[in-house]
Design a protein around this nucleic acid. Structure first.
Lengths: 183, 183
DNA sequence: TATGGCATGTAATGAGTTACATGATTCC
DNA sequence: GGAATCATGTAACTCATTACATGCCATA
């Protein structure tokens, strides 16, 4: 239910082709809403059919040829409507927590290595976000748009901080656990 | 890919029928892996067909009649294998962050009320987790199983703490924003 | 002219959600 | 015996993922 709106947002920020969108979904927007190129092309087709976006004038309906989209007024209206609409938060669904709970019944053998790997990944992501903060949000610049985008980035930073701390804590606990392995 | 393993874990903790599992997925396990009864029945069928679980002896293959499942050795082995296997963390996908980013281009009108609502929901969830912690994990009890389950609960508590703080911060920022509404 | 990279797409599968259907049991 | 509730299930649909297919274009 959110992918079309993620695409509308990206296209309002800057008209783009499918592949350009795909690249932007690998960073920026993709930091909190990921999507593959297959999803994006399918959704661009739907959005165009629904009259929310259109291909820019030089429209060649040829296959391997670039096609840039822009948002139509109806698309902007739909995005504004969706942004303001009440939506319930989705319940948490996390594999790692599930595996820990499973480990309580089948033993912790082998889990620790993957916790360490996750810790490294989250540390890396955290460093990346902090670099972006330094580069794109220096103190001083604070248009409303900047503030909103900064707020989103802060969520990313705080979430990664949470995961690194939690994983460090978990690993410390593991070190103290008596041999539960293979239980 | 994780639902079957969530079910195996729940059944190892205690053999149950489909509806009992559904209830347990509304709390406990469901706090970090939610599932509806339709998913659960479908998955129970698959797990039984694959020989990972079985219906308890008094097996009546009658429709509206209770059917309790238990885990077979092959099921335990599969769960242990899955628990130890390396798995990449799934990229974040959060609607609220997306809406904030959208608000930076279409305006913040109407968003604030829903942020407040989310804040209330997260505060409620946090209180619920803290109550569980008081009740189920008093200082002192610390078998390895308790420690692992407590670790999972701590993740829930810390995550809800993060969201409440972030939402408070976001609302404070909103209060300072010049009229961006309807931009 | 052929190779590699760019760009757009199709097909198949799987996981999750929503709506509905049916049998058994209990209690009035 | 009728209504409510418990319990199990089916069907249809949407969304996401994985693998593959095809056309264009530059350049060696």
């Amino acid at each position: 239910m959110s992918l079309p709106h993620a695409i509308l947002t990206a296209l309002l920020e800057r008209p783009s082709s499918g592949l350009e969108l795909t690249r932007r979904f690998d960073k920026s927007i993709g930091y909190f809403w990921s999507a593959t190129h297959q999803q994006i092309y399918r959704e661009l087709g739907k959005l165009e059919a629904d009259g929310l976006i259109r291909a820019l004038p030089a429209e060649q309906p040829v296959r391997g040829q670039k096609k840039t989209y822009e948002v139509l007024p109806a698309g902007g209206a739909e995005l504004a409507r969706w942004t303001a609409a009440a939506q319930d938060p989705k319940p948490l669904r996390d594999t790692l927590l599930l595996r820990l709970r499973a480990a309580a019944v089948v033993g912790t053998a082998g889990l620790e290595a993957d916790l360490r790997r996750h810790l490294d990944l989250h540390r890396g992501q955290l460093a990346e976000y902090e670099e972006i903060e330094r580069r794109d949000f220096p103190p001083g610049r604070d248009s409303p748009q900047d503030r909103l985008q900064h707020l989103v980035l802060r969520a990313g930073i705080d979430l990664e901080t949470f995961w690194t701390r939690w994983l460090e804590h978990a690993l410390a606990e593991f070190a103290e656990l008596p041999g539960l392995d293979g239980r």
